[in-house]
Lab assay of single mutants.
Amino acid sequence: MKVIFLKDVKGKGKKGEIKNVADGYANNFLFKQGLAIEATPANLKALE
Rank of each mutant, 00 (worst) to 15 (best):
M1C: 08
K2H: 08
K2C: 13
K2V: 13
V3L: 03
I4P: 01
I4L: 10
I4E: 01
I4W: 02
I4D: 02
I4M: 08
L6G: 00
L6N: 03
L6T: 06
L6H: 00
K7N: 10
K7F: 12
K7Y: 12
K7E: 11
K7A: 12
K7V: 14
K7R: 11
D8K: 04
D8F: 04
D8P: 05
D8H: 08
V9R: 00
V9D: 01
V9C: 06
V9T: 03
V9W: 03
V9L: 06
K10E: 14
K10R: 12
K10H: 13
K10S: 05
K10P: 15
K10Q: 12
G11Y: 07
G11Q: 05
G11P: 03
K12T: 10
K12S: 13
K12D: 10
G13I: 05
G13K: 05
G13N: 02
G13A: 09
G13M: 02
G13C: 06
K14P: 01
K14G: 07
K14Q: 09
K14T: 09
K14M: 11
K14A: 09
K14L: 09
K14F: 13
K15F: 06
K15R: 12
K15G: 03
K15H: 05
K15W: 05
K15D: 02
G16L: 04
G16P: 00
E17I: 02
E17A: 06
E17G: 02
E17F: 02
E17S: 06
E17P: 00
E17H: 04
E17K: 02
I18R: 00
I18T: 06
K19F: 07
K19V: 14
K19W: 07
K19A: 12
K19E: 04
N20L: 15
N20A: 14
N20Q: 13
N20R: 13
N20W: 15
N20F: 15
N20Y: 15
N20K: 13
N20I: 15
N20H: 14
V21A: 02
V21T: 03
A22C: 11
A22D: 15
A22Y: 10
A22N: 14
A22K: 14
A22R: 13
A22L: 09
D23L: 15
D23H: 14
D23V: 15
D23E: 15
G24H: 14
G24F: 14
G24M: 11
G24R: 14
G24N: 14
G24Q: 13
G24L: 13
Y25R: 05
Y25W: 09
Y25N: 05
A26W: 08
A26D: 07
N27F: 14
N27Q: 13
N27G: 07
N27L: 15
N28A: 12
N28F: 10
N28T: 10
F29K: 06
F29H: 10
F29E: 08
F29S: 06
F29R: 05
F29Y: 14
L30H: 00
L30D: 02
L30N: 01
L30F: 02
L30A: 02
L30W: 05
L30T: 01
F31N: 03
F31Q: 04
F31Y: 06
F31D: 03
K32T: 13
K32R: 11
K32S: 12
K32C: 09
K32A: 13
K32D: 09
K32M: 12
K32L: 09
K32P: 15
Q33A: 11
Q33K: 13
Q33N: 15
Q33T: 09
G34R: 06
G34Y: 08
G34I: 02
G34E: 07
G34W: 06
L35A: 06
L35T: 03
L35K: 04
A36I: 08
A36F: 03
A36W: 03
A36R: 00
A36D: 02
I37E: 03
I37G: 00
I37M: 11
E38A: 11
E38N: 04
E38T: 06
E38M: 10
E38Q: 09
E38L: 10
E38P: 14
A39S: 04
A39P: 02
A39K: 01
T40S: 10
T40P: 02
T40H: 05
P41I: 10
A42T: 10
A42Q: 11
A42I: 08
A42C: 06
A42R: 08
A42G: 11
A42V: 09
N43H: 08
N43G: 05
N43E: 05
N43D: 03
N43V: 11
N43P: 02
L44T: 06
L44F: 06
L44P: 01
L44Q: 07
L44W: 03
L44H: 04
L44R: 06
K45Q: 11
K45A: 10
K45R: 08
K45M: 13
K45C: 13
A46P: 07
A46C: 10
A46M: 13
A46T: 11
A46R: 12
A46Q: 12
A46S: 09
A46N: 11
L47I: 12
L47M: 11
L47Y: 15
L47W: 14
E48V: 14
E48P: 09
E48H: 13
E48S: 12
E48T: 12
E48Q: 13
